[in-house]
Structures are given as structure tokens and as C-alpha cells.
Design a protein around this nucleic acid. Structure first.
Lengths: 354, 354
DNA sequence: TTGAAAGCGCTAACAA
DNA sequence: TTGTTAGCGCTTTCAA
């Protein structure tokens, strides 16, 4: 073994073996723990390894095993607070199981996705938790047959039927809009997420279901689309305004959109919730610090991450083959209230009860 | 070479060698690119490799080389938007150089930090971009002599004299407060960051310098401390209020604090900027979507990440040995304005000029 | 300019 | 229960 001044060299399994007077195989067995070893040699070898400050070389282990202790999580935008919380959940769950998390920020760029996947393949990484790929189906298939196992989080993988862990998006949308209806809102707008993200349709479906259940006619002019960002929400709200602005409430497809809409609404002179009620989706950390604090549908990002990691450590046979749904809940805060007089007055039942 | 149905097996360098009728060493040379190889064999081997879909096995490469193509970035909290932007910068710069980024979220927990560092060591990772460790100096030293190279980002490493890439925090604080003074504010509070984070002191020093330069007496009752979060900012603002609340402006040590303070200020019935001006620090994405949008000191997180990656790819000899400062700038938005009448009237010069 | 061969550190048959 | 040995896939002397 090289001296520490030589840098990165460390005690190897051979150093331990020689020092302990056994073979390297025995040391390996002791370390792996699951092979039969005499208690006395186990104790001795462990002590020697400890004394030498031995640390297994993960790279050598990977090469020999053709496995890796890393799990990758691939997502479109780490600056989206929902995703960064998700990452936190993945990371803490992975850590508990001795796995290291590799975060891949793709910017929804297929070229980046490909580079990452190639890199993961080259590094023997097997499991990829993925939040929406933009890569084409064929490429994904190719990576799968090359040995990658995908677990979809939040968004399904292109056409493919991988396991998917996601929140009850439709139910959440319904919850949000039912809340608004209960408050007596009738003209409810929806800022939907991008069409190419399936959960956008689910949340929108929840919106439609709630309206229909209350016999409220659906007005397409009240639905606009936006990307998941404050920027997008701001623009979408302007568009809604441009179309006439005849609504007393908005259900936004996520909190960022809601925050952008909130900022724009206030700039256009409306007070929230007096003139306009607003509901978001996700319950990101910042949602309780907007002015007013945002009423929103809570998704448990940490739980989603944990559940996904749980899946990869579940023997393949016991693994569910289709979607795992996570419950959502409504968090009431200050951004929703009764509609302004003009359109509210007619009903007094139900309000504030949900 | 195994068939693709066998899973993760791929063409190896030997498959290419055999197919091309050369030795594995030659293939290796061709791939490495920097060794002398006959042009004809280079072309031929490249073609064969291409045809076989050969991809070098990074694990084997690492084992042989005792190096890795990964660079780690270790930070206290990925959900802090400033850090997630920083990560984005690191990742894109790393990617351009063929490096893969490993993100380690430590929660400021020394036990987690240690586990991560052990793992990195085991994976042959050499470079760690680190945003503030809580680990003790001795441990850090031990990791360094075990071969890890630390590059400090945003916050210096414990007592150690590693390279540090950071913004001009003192200058930024001064800029913020000078702006408030120019607007005619005289009673300016400061919500400082945690004492154990050095940049807190720098920004606070900027605050003090600006006050002194304007001959404004410093009032310790106007300075409170907070962790870097909205939660903390909210609490700090309450404390400030409890102490009498005789101030017309607040300089917050970061945007999250500012956002928490903003929410609380509004709840306590003040309008911003009419009753109270507020300046943040960082210019995170959300800062332009608060109500009103936040005036703040802009740090270029992406640039910081890029600069750090640049450093690790710089030959050690040419590498700076101490702090690399990045410029900051003031972004004027809606959260700052003239102080309320009572305390403003007396001066008419300067206002709105900066 | 190329090839043979010895590692890098660990694991896993197979034998003993 | 333990040791011997042959890889895992690549890099890199050293010779040719």
C-alpha cells in the first residue's frame, strides 16, 4: 500500500489479506457478509481492515459485478421547486439503502438525454428514475434492451408501459375546482399545463369533472395553456384577460403558474382573493409565502421519490407493473375566498365548507 | 460479445480488436486519440468500432486509470433556488467538458457529508465543488490527503485555504443599501444570514459600509439574524417589528429571506414599497414574480458554476490559489421606492438616480 | 507503428 | 470453511 502522501492510493483487499494472514477471497467474503466465514476469522479480518483504514474500491467492485451502486434521476429542470423536492426524497431514500444518486438535468433536450443515458450505460448504472423524456420511443427501447431499467416518476415514459409513480392528478384537479365551486364561484378559468405533458390533461380532466358535477357549463375561452413556470403563468393570465376576463377564479395547473398569474393579476389591479380566487397545484415550499399565501393541491414530492426508490429495491417479481398512485390533498390558504358580490350573492349554502 | 437479449453486455475493446484484426492496445490508442497510430488503421478501427456500436466501459477505464469522469457538487440544500441554479451552471459546464455531475445534498449534516465523501473516494471521484461543509477541519484535511480536491463555491471551506469562487458579497450589500439611501431612506434594517456562514458577515459589512459612508448612525436594534429561508425571513421580520419597527426599508441577506419578510410585512398591513422598501440578494428566478417584484442584488449562479468547473479543468499550476470574485449588480424592481412622507420629505436630491 | 502482457481492485467459480 | 485462479474491460509499459 502506498503512503498517504502519494495521494489517492489506499489499502486494498490484498493489503488486508496479507496483514490478516488470509486470502483475498476470504477478506472479500467477510466484507460481503453473506458468505459463510468462521466467526473467528470474520472478527480478525474486520479488525485488520479497520486498522488499515480499508475502504472497498467501488469502481473495481462495479467492474467485477457489472453493477453499480448508483441510481440516476433524470428530470427536465432542477430549478423547478417541485422537482428539487422530489430529488430530495429520492436522495434520502436512496441513501438509506446505500445507493448514490446521480442527478441528470436534461432541459428537455433529447441530445442531452441521450448523452446522459450513454454515460449511465458506460458507468454500469442500471436504474433510471425518469421524469418525462423527450427522446423518441425507439431510442428508449434501445436503452432498455441495453440493460437500463426505467421507472417513471410523475410523467409516463413515451408510450411505453413502465412502472409509473404519480399523484392522483385528476383527483387533485377535481378537489381544487370543487373547492372553488363550494365557495360559490361559477366562472372558473383554468391555466392548463403543456399538452405534451400527460398530467396536464389529467388535472384538466379533474377541472372538467368538477364543473360537470356541479352542472356548470364549460367555457373553452376560460382555458389557456402554459408551460410550468411563473413566466408562463404570467403570460397565460394576460391571455385570459385579453379574452374578456369574465371569471372570478383560476385553477392553475401548478404552483409556479399560479404564482406568475398571481403577480400579473395584482399588477392588473385585482386583489386576491377579494376580486379573484386562485388555486395552484404541488404545494411547493414557496406557496405559503406568496401574498396572499396560495391555496393549493398538495403533492408529496418526498413520498414520490421514496416510493420510486422503494420500487427499484423491490425484487422485480413483486414490482407493480403499472401506475402507482399517490394521494393528494387540498391545502386551504389565503388565495381563495368568496367571489366578489356581483356574482356571488345568489347562494349562501355550502360556502367555506368543503 | 453477448447478444443484446442478454442485457447489459456490449461490444468490448476485444471485440473491436478481433473484428478489425489488430490488438486491443491499438484499439485503445485509436480511441484515446493522442497516441501515434497509422492513419489507415485509425480509420479502419474507428469504422469497426462504429459498426459494432462499441462504447467504452467507463468503469473499466476508471479502474485502470484511477480517475473518474465525475465531478461532485456538494451543497446544503438543493431546494434553495440559488443552489439549484448553481447546480445548473456546474452541470452545463461540466457536460461541455465531458464530465458527469454528481449532486450531493447534505442538509448540513456532517454524517451525511462524511458518507458522501467516503462514497466519492470509493468511486475515484477527485474533484468536489463544495458549498459550505459542516465537517470539522481535521476530517476535511484527511479527505484531502486521501486524494480529494476541494473547490469551494460561495462559501469557504472550514479554515482551509482552498480556492474559493464567490460573488462580491460585501460589494453587493453596499450596492443594495446605497440604493436605499439614495432613495432617501435613513432607518434601514438588515436581516442578516446565519453567523456561521461567512458571506453573511460580508453582506452585513456592505450594509455597514454604506451607512457609514452616508453618515448614518448604525442601530443594532435594526439588525436581526435569520437562516436562509422564507420561514426564517418571516420570523425575523416579526422580531424586527417587535423591537419597535422604526424603519422604512429592509435589506435582506438573500431573496428567500426577503420573500418571507415581504409576506409578513403585507400580513401586518404594510404596503410595499409605499410603507416599506425591501431589497434582497441573489436574484433567484422567483424574485421577479413576487408582489411587488423584488429589487435585489444579482449574483450570477450559472457563471459561478461555470467558473468552478473551469478551475478543475485548469492545470493545477495555473490555478488561482485564493478567492475568485464574481461581480454582482443591482436589479431595480418594484419593492423599493421613496420612504413614506413622514421621513422622506426633507430631501429632494438624488432620489431615483443611482 | 504495433503487439504482448501485466496490472487496476474486486468477485466468484472451483478445489481443497 | 478457506485458498487458488481466472476474469471484469481498459490502459500502458516494454519489445519488436
Amino acid at each position: 500500500m502506498a503512503t498517504s502522501s502519494e495521494g489517492i492510493s489506499r489499502a486494498t483487499i490484498y493489503d488486508v489479506a496479507k496483514e490478516a494472514g488470509v486470502s483475498s477471497a476470504t477478506v472479500s467474503r467477510v466484507l460481503a457478509g453473506r458468505d459463510i466465514v468462521a466467526e473467528s476469522t470474520r472478527v480478525h479480518v474486520t479488525a485488520v481492515a479497520e486498522r488499515l483504514g480499508y475502504r472497498p474500491n467501488q469502481v473495481a467492485r462495479s467492474l467485477s459485478n457489472r453493477t453499480s451502486d448508483m441510481v440516476a434521476v433524470m428530470l427536465p429542470d432542477i430549478t423547478n421547486p417541485f422537482f428539487s423536492e422530489l430529488v430530495k426524497g429520492v436522495q434520502s431514500a436512496a441513501f438509506e439503502r446505500g445507493l448514490t444518486t446521480l442527478i441528470c438535468n436534461t432541459e428537455s433536450d433529447p441530445a442531452l438525454e441521450r448523452r446522459y443515458l450513454d454515460g449511465l450505460l458506460a458507468s454500469q448504472v442500471q436504474y433510471i428514475l425518469v421524469v418525462g423524456l423527450t427522446l423518441d420511443r425507439e431510442s428508449v427501447q434501445r436503452y432498455m434492451s441495453a440493460g437500463l431499467t426505467f421507472i417513471a416518476l410523475d410523467r409516463p415514459l413515451q408510450h411505453s408501459s413502465q412502472v409509473l409513480v404519480q399523484s392522483d392528478n385528476r383527483g387533485g384537479g377535481e378537489l381544487a375546482v370543487r373547492h372553488l365551486i363550494t365557495l360559490n364561484h361559477r366562472r372558473i378559468a383554468h391555466i392548463a399545463g403543456p399538452v405534451d405533458v400527460p398530467l396536464s390533461a389529467d388535472r384538466r380532466q379533474g377541472y372538467l369533472d368538477a364543473l360537470r358535477a356541479a352542472n356548470i357549463e364549460v367555457d373553452d375561452a376560460l382555458v389557456v395553456e402554459s408551460e410550468f413556470s411563473e413566466q408562463g403563468g404570467a403570460r397565460a393570465f394576460e391571455e385570459l384577460d385579453r379574452r374578456g376576463g369574465d371569471f372570478t377564479a383560476v385553477f392553475a395547473a401548478d404552483d409556479l403558474i399560479a404564482m406568475g398569474a398571481l403577480a400579473t393579476a395584482r399588477q392588473s389591479g385585482r386583489s386576491v382573493p377579494e376580486d379573484l380566487s386562485l388555486v395552484g397545484f404541488d404545494d411547493v415550499l414557496h406557496a405559503r409565502f406568496t401574498a396572499p399565501p396560495l391555496t393549493t393541491v398538495r403533492q408529496d414530492a418526498m413520498a414520490m421519490g421514496e416510493r420510486a426508490v422503494e420500487l427499484i429495491t423491490t425484487p422485480e417479481a413483486d414490482r407493480p407493473t403499472d401506475t402507482v398512485f399517490l394521494p393528494v390533498s387540498l391545502v386551504l390558504r389565503g388565495s381563495t375566498g368568496l367571489p366578489p358580490k356581483r356574482s356571488a350573492a345568489s347562494r349562501k349554502d355550502q360556502a367555506w365548507s368543503d
